[in-house]
Design a protein around this nucleic acid. Structure first.
Lengths: 168, 168
DNA sequence: ATCTCACTTGCGACTGAGTCTCAGTTGCCA
DNA sequence: TGGCAACTGAGACTCAGTCGCAAGTGAGAT
């Protein structure tokens, strides 16, 4: 399913519009991101590129991610950890995340009702919103069945610790 | 209004319950946090302590913040930047944040309707929530009047850049 | 009042994510 | 196909946060 080409075209358009170039490195990164990753972190991407023949420096990975975010092909999200995650965008589906603190899995949802309510709140506060970021942390169904407990019984101590540990 | 003493007592109770001690450093930090700060970052607190006679090491600040979060006296929040912010808690008012990307100001809101909807979404996905984190980024009323534009016209490029720059 | 020991602290070295600089390379348009 | 602006890689740097360890301290036991 190499519709990746469409994304590469979109990226080139975006770059050209501001006198920037589509290089081999940038192409390779877009290809990698849209081929396999969905939610990923910058270093994970760097590592994947290192595994393949393709050698791309840390700086280039970060620089390219920034461009991709600006172009709208990639979105930067908080997933409860203390650094950013990225997700590629196909189409325009805005969504928010449920993050399991036990297994680290991420469930997406999109709820127009919720969005609407947010707009109402902004209107009431005379606030002009451009963007929002909502994560709900908790325990997913399969972890709950396994008897996993919430990260902390009452007040959550720190955000997404379980998921954090899993990762390393 | 030195009701701070009440918070210090609460903290001591919490510590005692797990065989931990209320030290001078911890007391000084609680005092500082509840006296002046509302939203703050760890290094800001460190700096404030340094300004006063009180010398407290970076490690102790971070260690104490962790304890305060566990005790429920302080909450750790994302405010759109790439590191944590903290806010002290009086009473039990959960709330979320509107963050102005132009001036960095933070407006709090608490909307039971929104919370209810989130619970419904969780139920539908068989997800057991423990905590959530919502920031809405945009432009506050007074900045909008001054003609401030949203951080990025269409897709937001990166989260809270305006606020970020202001700070340093 | 003081002893004692587990709990704490400060220090400084460390980590990990992300940024910056600069010399050398490359895409692209004339 | 030559030129130059844009790009890349390497590695030094920054900044938030953590860790290990030797020295210090609070509070219950005596």
């Amino acid at each position: 399913m190499p519709t990746v080409e469409r994304e590469i075209d979109r990226f080139q358009d975006f770059l050209a519009r501001q006198g920037q170039k589509l290089t081999q490195e940038r192409t390779a990164l877009v290809r990698e991101i849209f081929a396999t990753h969905y939610h990923f972190e910058a270093d994970e991407l760097l590592f994947k590129m290192k595994q393949k023949s393709t050698k791309i420096s840390r700086a280039t990975v970060y620089r390219t991610l920034e461009l991709l975010v600006k172009s709208g092909l990639v979105r930067r999200v908080h997933l409860g950890e203390d650094h950013y995650h990225y997700e590629h965008v196909r189409g325009d589906s805005h969504h928010d995340h449920l993050v399991c603190t036990a297994c680290g899995s991420v469930i997406e949802f999109n709820d127009p009702e919720l969005e609407k309510r947010q707009l109402e709140i902004c209107a009431r506060k005379k606030f002009t919103p451009t963007f929002h970021n909502l994560q709900i942390l908790g325990v997913c169904d399969s972890c709950r069945r396994k008897g996993e407990q919430p990260a902390s019984p009452d007040r959550v101590t720190s955000i997404g610790e379980g998921a954090m540990r899993l990762r390393k």
